[in-house]
């Protein structure tokens, strides 16, 4: 679904991403894991078209980066994002969906809200009254209510409390079961272990591994993902 070939990106003279190639298969949950500053966000922003100067090739659903319809097939949610403070939850979803030329399905939205333990009455309130977790959940509800089948997240559970994290994760797993492909970045190994079918390990801008979690453990000859990760980045 996503194909990245020889991606490199430099900020002035600092090479943030070095010749990275990987593929996110259709129907997978691909987790990009790495330490802070490893280059995860740079890769995500490049794939989503927010970073414009880079070398390499990127295609999403067979459409090359920069083509007119490129951004039609995915939706992106950044970390710690704040929805428009002056809109209600319903208005925010309606606004964002209209950018995809999609309407608003109230029943589907309410069902999604219920799954995420998002109080439906909150959808009538202005987003300025939302907590960080509630705002992030609204972002997920909106993302899941679009027709796009590819969901891209940058540290989606950053700053969420344990309950909200669990609800967020179960909603993502369910979306995956319903046919969505998920591409996310995280620095929390437990998220990878519980959600991801595939992972990419990135350190100092270099992709050290891309494949399945079991393959990664086998490669490092350990049964634990954390140990495998620590062993990999220490090489």
């Amino acid at each position: 679904m996503i194909k990245v070939e020889n991606l490199s990106k430099a900020y002035k003279k600092n090479l943030a991403v070095k010749d990275v190639s990987f593929e996110v298969p259709v129907g997978s949950v691909y987790g990009l894991i790495g330490l802070n500053g490893a280059g995860k966000t740079t890769i995500i922003k490049t794939v989503t078209g927010l970073i414009k100067k880079f070398s390499g090739n990127i295609t999403v659903c067979g459409i090359e980066w920069g083509r007119k319809d490129y951004r039609r097939n995915f939706v992106f949610l950044p970390e710690l994002f704040t929805p428009h403070h002056f809109l209600t939850g319903w208005e925010y979803i309606s606004f964002m969906n209209s950018l995809h030329d999609a309407g608003i399905d109230r029943d589907k939205t309410l069902a999604l809200a219920e799954k995420l333990a998002f109080e439906p009455a909150l959808l009538n309130k202005k987003c300025r009254t939302y907590s960080k977790g509630t705002a992030q959940k609204l972002g997920l509800i909106q993302v899941l209510s679009t027709p796009a089948k590819l969901l891209i997240f940058d540290e989606p559970m950053s700053g969420l409390d344990p309950l909200a994290r669990a609800q967020f994760k179960s909603a993502l797993i369910e979306a995956h079961e319903q046919g969505h492909t998920v591409f996310l970045s995280t620095h929390i190994l437990h998220d990878i272990d519980t959600m991801c079918t595939h992972l990419g390990v990135i350190n100092k801008g270099e992709l050290l591994f891309s494949g399945t979690p079991s393959g990664f453990k086998e490669k490092n000859e350990v049964a634990d993902l954390e140990k495998a990760f620590l062993k990999e980045i220490a090489k």
């Binding site: 927010l50 992106f76 994002f81 403070h85």
Partner: peptide
């Protein structure tokens, strides 16, 4: 500036908006 700082501009520009 508010749209940029709240990252909402990132969300809008990652959608099919020229």
């Amino acid at each position: 500036r508010r749209e940029l700082d709240g990252k909402i501009m990132l969300v809008i520009l990652s959608r099919p908006v020229q």
